[in-house]
Every structure is written in structure tokens, then in C-alpha cells.
Design a protein around this nucleic acid. Structure first.
Length: 493
RNA sequence: GGCGCUAUCGUCUAAUGGUCAGGACAGCAGAUUUUCAAUCUGUCAAUCCGGGUUCGAUUCCCGGUAGCGCUACCA
């Protein structure tokens, strides 16, 4: 299908601050397809909007793409450095009367639009300058009146094109505006620059978001005016939130950088985004590397439905990756989310990470879930009570659990005192404490280990939910473990 | 408003005229368990609506509806 010419695709972001999660999806599609077809992947920076340009955006963009191991064969090319090229082609169109100078002021344009909307008309340029006589044009130019260059859109025609994903799409030219090609600041608009650059850079497949479908006829018209062969168009669906609504505009919700900062792994992000592009059959695995995705790439697997940013699914994928990371490496990755002033040694931190590994959805989870290893405990003494149903009862009330809890903690304390420092490990503690725990019988006559183990676990973690008491005790060490149990006893007294 | 794109369990998706409409995430239940995870097992749950075409429509066609997009000297 693509044998005739080499596959060349480009990713063409505009540097407005950060990499949008939707853009990551476009890059990935570009990348997967170009690698699958052994084609070229080009990076082009579309920095033609001087007002929206953000300092440092390009550097940050390049850095982010690097973390995903997405490499470019050519570029980055900057449109802002190619102004003369666009102007040259604009002049050609002017000469051939396929474009014209427009001297309308922004104020006039705005007023016209408002009136059109008020009259329930479709807002469109009224072609006021389309047929200015030569003399007026020359005078205006001589007087240095600000101008734009607009393309002439023919009336009464239908423009058809074939989209690889969506099939035949057609638009009537009567609904298409005389698009501005060159703005009054001398910069081209997206519409003009994209056509020129895609042609000059020999782009074979133009992939972009669905929001561009409606402007494709303008681009096609330009290809025709310039006598160039258009590329194959592919319009990728947009990304929506889980309710099918628009994605939030807040950077924290959509910036790829924010996902990374929150502890989503690049591989997991790629996997998730890949799954929003390609579909997987019945019992095929959903955990896929970049290379897996390249291998399985096929246009008939590419979705045309909107992509949904399903955080639950992302979390699950991310947790799958976290479980596969060797502890040493995972520890390194978690370090930014742990207290920096901790005096715990490396080995201890590794043990904590190992304990939390199956509980983590994202790296940042480690901060809250392991905080009790790093700081003084703060919890309601009521939490020490087992079973939970008895909590909240005051001393003197029937079945007040305080004494039972105290008894448990005292017992644990005295047993642990006798454990030698050197053998204070989770396995050993389990061996010693389990038989004791199993001596407890609840009101139904069943073994009730919680009677001993729950108060101990809470005394050590201060949390309702945490890893088991033996593992925690090992990490805390004998001294700290006994200290925490003593504190719990004091709390109850 | 006009134009366009899209439409299968709560969410993503498979099935391209014939399936008990399959899988994954989430949910729920069970096993395990001192709690929470992890793990294993089971379970709930869908073809937007209305017309055609056809022996037969999730699938093809038309209309409606809904969601999204475009309608800028932004991309």
C-alpha cells in the first residue's frame, strides 16, 4: 500500500508550554507507524504564533520526548526560521491571483462577525478586499497599511478527500472562509505553513488530531493552487475524560510532565496511550512495550472512537510495571517521594519499598503509605481496639476493650523483649508471635489472631490499613518497635 | 445556528451478515488473611432510537438523538 514512496511522517507541536497528553498520542501514532514502515520521523516546531510562544517550552518538550525514548530522524525544524519560504510562496499565489491582499482592520472584522452572529448568519469574511483595484492596493502598500494575505476560495465547489481512518469526507467550498495565509506580522498561519512544509519535507502521511478535519479542504485547495500532490491524511480522534466530556484545561490534568511528576512510568504511559490507539484482541496481553506496539501496528487496529483518559486503567497498567521493577531500581525511582532528611539507611529504605511495591499504583503513593516509618505516629487510641465493632466504647461500659488491648500489647511487649537483636526478622517474629496469637478465641469460639496482631500493627503503623506487623517490626528494629508499643500502652492508660 | 466526526457492558475494546455478543479495567462475591494491598476463582453488566435492505443485522443504507470538533490575523 505504501510501497511507492518512502513513509515520512512528522510530529508538529506548537511550543505553548507543555506536552498535552493528547499530543503524546499523536507522537506515538507517528512513531509507531514510521517505525513499522521503516520510514522517517521528523520533528517540526510550529512556532508561528508569537503571542503564545512560551520561553523554555521547546527545551521541555524535547526533554519529555526523550524520556519516552521516542527518537527523531530529522529536525527539529523551526517554522519561525522559514519565513522567507512562506513569503515566497505567498507572493507566487498573489501573482497568480489565487490569493489577495486584505487591508481590513481587526476592528472591522470583529464588528462584522458580531453582526453576522446577531443575525444568525454563519460568521465569515465578506471578501471585502477580494476585488480591490490595483491602484488602491498599491497605494495602501505604499502607505505601509498593515495587511494580511488571504487565499481565494472558489464558490460552488465540493472538495472531497479520503481519510485513512474515516474514509470519504466532503465539504462545500461555500462554507469555507477566505483563509488568512500570512498574518499582518509577516508570520504564516498554521494552514499555510503546514501545507508548504509538509510538501517541502516530503511528508507522505499527514497525521494530526480530528480538530483539523474541517480545515483539510483549505489545505487541499492550497495543494491544488501550488500544483502539489497532497499527502495521505489521517485524523486521529481526540481525547476525552471518563465521562465523555472535554478534558480539563488545567495543566495538572493534561500535561504529560505532570503525569511523570506524579510517578507514572514512561513505559506505562506509552502502554496506556498505545492502548487508546490500537486495539487488542480477546485474550492478548494488554501489557505492551513500545516495541510490542510497533510490531502489532496495523491501520485496521487503529481506533476512530474518541480516546478516554481512564485513570483507573492507567493506574492498573502503571502498577503492573511497578511490580516488575527490581527493588534497587524502584527505590531509586521512589526517592523523590520520600522524606529527604531521613536517617534510615539504604537497606532499610529498600525493605520499605519492597513492602509497598504491590500496594503502589504510582510512585508518588509511596509518600503517604510509608510515612509512618519516617515520623512520629499520630493516631486515635481507639484505633488500637480489636475487633473494630468495639471501638468508641468508654471505660466502664460493658465489654470495654481497653483491658484486652492492654493485655495484648503487654504480652507482645514482653515477648519481643526476649528476642535477640540479631534475630529480629519478620520470619522469626512470626514464628514466635503466631502461636501466641492463635491462643486467642473470640466469642464464637473461633481462633482470633487479630486480638494480638491488630493492636501491635496499629501501635507500629498508626494506620487502619498497612502492611503486616512482622514486616514493619523488622524494618523498625527492636528498639523502635518496643518504643512504639510502649507508647501505645501509655496512650491507653 | 451551520458544517463535520463518532456511537457495543459504568469505561476501553473484540466480533467486518449467522457468536450463548468475547476480553480488559472498575464493581461485586468468594478463597487467602490481623487490616490494606497483591494473588487466584466466580459474578453482574452492552449493541443509542426509528425506519429500511436481507432468510438473517452490532455489522450495510436513510432519518433522528447524543457527545465531541470546527466555524480567529490560535494552533
Amino acid at each position: 500500500m505504501f510501497k511507492n514512496s518512502k513513509v515520512r511522517v512528522r510530529f508538529a507541536p506548537s511550543p505553548t508550554g507543555f506536552l498535552h497528553i493528547g499530543s503524546l498520542r499523536t507522537v506515538l501514532l507517528d512513531y509507531l507507524f514510521s517505525k513499522k514502515e521503516k520510514g522517517d520521523f521528523i520533528l517540526r516546531i510550529e512556532d508561528t504564533d508569537q503571542e503564545r510562544f512560551t520561553e523554555g517550552a521547546i527545551e521541555s518538550l524535547l526533554k519529555t520526548l526523550k524520556t519516552f525514548k521516542i527518537k527523531f530522524d530529522e529536525g527539529p525544524f523551526y517554522q519561525s526560521k522559514r519565513l522567507d519560504i512562506y513569503n515566497k510562496h505567498a507572493e507566487q499565489l498573489l501573482k497568480e491571483e489565487k490569493a489577495y491582499y486584505c487591508f481590513c482592520t481587526k476592528e472591522r472584522l470583529e464588528k462584522m462577525r458580531e453582526e453576522q452572529i446577531a443575525n444568525k448568519q454563519a460568521p465569515m469574511y465578506d471578501q471585502h478586499c477580494r476585488n480591490l483595484d490595483k491602484k488602491t492596493i498599491e497605494e495602501n502598500l505604499k502607505n505601509k497599511a498593515p495587511y494580511t494575505i488571504r487565499m481565494k476560495v472558489p464558490a460552488g465547489e465540493t472538495i472531497k478527500f479520503h481519510d485513512l481512518l474515516h474514509g470519504e469526507i466532503e465539504f462545500k467550498t461555500d462554507l469555507i472562509d477566505d483563509q488568512i495565509l500570512i498574518k499582518s506580522d509577516g508570520f504564516p498561519t498554521y494552514h499555510f505553513a503546514v501545507v508548504i512544509d509538509d510538501h517541502l519535507m516530503k511528508i507522505s502521511h499527514a497525521m494530526r488530531g480530528e480538530e483539523w478535519i474541517s480545515s483539510t479542504p483549505k489545505h487541499l485547495l492550497l495543494y491544488k493552487y501550488l500544483n502539489w500532490k497532497p499527502p495521505i491524511f489521517i485524523h486521529l480522534s481526540l481525547m476525552l475524560n471518563k465521562n465523555g466530556g472535554k478534558l480539563s484545561k488545567r495543566k495538572g490534568d493534561v500535561a504529560v510532565e505532570s503525569f511523570l511528576e506524579n510517578g507514572y512510568l514512561p513505559e506505562a504511559l506509552i502502554n496506556f496511550i498505545g492502548l487508546t490507539i490500537l486495539s487488542v484482541k480477546d485474550k492478548e496481553k494488554e501489557i505492551l512495550s513500545l516495541n510490542d506496539l510497533i510490531k502489532m501496528f496495523n491501520w485496521n487496529k487503529v481506533h476512530k472512537n474518541p480516546a478516554i483518559l481512564d485513570i483507573d486503567k492507567l493506574d492498573w497498567i502503571n502498577s503492573q510495571y511497578i511490580k516488575q521493577i527490581p527493588i534497587k531500581e524502584l527505590t531509586k525511582l521512589c526517592l523523590p517521594y520520600l522524606p529527604k532528611d531521613s536517617d534510615l539507611n539504604e537497606k532499610t529504605i529498600e525493605k520499605i519499598i519492597k513492602l509497598e511495591q504491590p500496594r503502589m499504583n504510582k510512585l508518588s503513593d509511596i509518600g503517604e503509605s510509608s510515612d509512618f516509618f519516617f515520623k512520629e505516629l499520630d493516631y486515635n487510641k481507639d484505633l488500637l481496639t480489636w475487633p473494630p465493632a468495639l471501638r468508641g466504647q468508654r471505660p466502664g461500659e460493658k465489654d470495654a476493650p481497653k483491658e484486652k488491648t492492654l493485655e495484648s500489647l503487654n504480652k507482645t511487649y514482653s515477648i519481643l523483649c526476649d528476642v535477640k537483636d540479631g534475630s529480629f526478622g519478620a520470619e522469626k517474629l512470626k514464628q514466635i508471635l503466631m502461636p501466641e496469637a492463635e491462643k486467642f478465641i473470640n466469642s464464637e469460639g473461633k481462633i482470633d489472631r487479630g486480638q494480638l496482631l491488630w493492636p501491635m500493627r496499629v501501635a507500629l503503623s498508626g494506620k487502619e490499613k498497612s502492611p503486616g506487623p512482622f514486616e514493619i517490626a523488622e524494618i523498625l528494629g527492636k528498639t523502635e518497635t518496643l518504643k512504639r508499643i510502649q507508647k501505645a500502652i501509655n496512650r491507653l492508660k
